[in-house]
Design a protein around this nucleic acid. Structure first.
Lengths: 194, 194
DNA sequence: GGTTAAGTTCAATCTTTTTTGAACCATTTG
DNA sequence: CAAATGGTTCAAAAAAGATTGAACTTAACC
């Protein structure tokens, strides 16, 4: 077998500088409520000059294939990394998204908005409950209405603010509010490059 | 013993309407990465017309004194509730902060800023590591420098943005980014009312 | 001062989330 | 087609986080 397809050097462990990047993103990930492994992976990709293959992620970070697979999927879903297909190599390579405004903007749309919409339904139910019990509640009904109403107002302001935030995203960058991506809905899971 | 000090009615369980509020805040709390019990407590207080005592929180929600104590402390620290001292009653009462801009603003200052400052130190270390290894790194050094630099830039923009966000807070209201309050630093732990 | 009530602390327990690893599926290669 | 490679899935193990409850502290009351 001619050793034609040059497997990259595949250093078995991390350079101190890489470790530094990984550390940074692990810290960020955990403060943001994401699994540590996701931070590790993103750190490695972010530090890397060239796209990194699945098996390299596993080997360099010393994490299981399972973690790597799930972590890379999550990062891909939220648009933090993209897949790069390299001609002549069967493996998939991954590349960190470094234009953070895109990252941020996508997170905003796909994570925040659904939450806020969820809230809105929630508040609707609450308001119904109040009305159902309004008679029995007597004067308290007014109080409850007003509290529920203020929830609604906040929520709607936040919702209205989303597009604005989106414009500001270049500034708000490198941290994302809360646990992203609970839901799903298929989107195009690919982006190609040679 | 004369039943002089009128313990409030102390309904043992929650009215459906209260349950609705509690549900809402439990949902919010968990999506934001806060313990469920904290959501329950805040929901109860938010729904209540009058300040609520510690033991009432315990009894109405059916949680342990430990949880109630810790939850109320957290909520107090982040400024989401304030303590109310009622003359003639030995117990401490708690009142939900309903002016959300204050809540938000405080969270911003006390939770976000420390994180960002932590990041900044972190990036400093990273940059040092890069310089220490610059020679050995050769041309890669430039690449690492530039990646680290972009981290720094994002972080500084975010930091610079804090005051601005603070002004916008009336809009950004009812959700707080990430796990609040890891650190401490004594602040005035009281606010009084009769 | 002694008793009681209010509230806090913290180790042990319960719950939830992450990670692992082995079994599996899908492609490619010879 | 069989063997090998790349990668995913998912049940079980491990780790992290939340909750409880009992012991403890502090202050009030008589």
């Amino acid at each position: 077998m001619p050793e034609s397809v040059s497997k990259p050097p595949l250093a078995e462990s991390l350079h101190p500088v890489e470790t530094g990047f990984v550390r940074f993103f692990v810290h960020l990930a955990t403060t943001v409520g994401l699994p540590r492994s996701v931070g590790e992976i993103f750190g490695l990709l972010f530090a890397s000059m060239a796209p990194v293959s699945f098996d390299e992620v596993v080997a360099r970070l010393g994490i299981s294939k399972g973690s790597a697979s799930q972590g890379l999927r999550l990062l891909t879903q939220i648009g933090a990394v993209s897949q790069v297909y390299v001609r002549g190599d069967r493996r998939t390579f991954y590349l960190a998204e470094t234009r953070m405004r895109q990252l941020f903007s996508k997170a905003l749309q796909e994570s925040l908005r659904p939450h806020l919409e969820g809230n809105s339904r929630h508040i609707g139910l609450l308001e119904e409950t109040i009305e159902e019990n309004a008679a029995a509640l007597g004067p308290a009904a007014g109080h409850y209405r007003s509290r529920a109403h203020s929830l609604r107002v906040w929520n709607e302001k936040a919702l209205a603010l989303l597009p604005l935030l989106d414009m500001l995203s270049p500034l708000l960058a490198p941290f994302l509010p809360f646990n992203l991506v609970k839901s799903d809905s298929a989107s195009e899971p690919d982006s190609k490059t040679s």
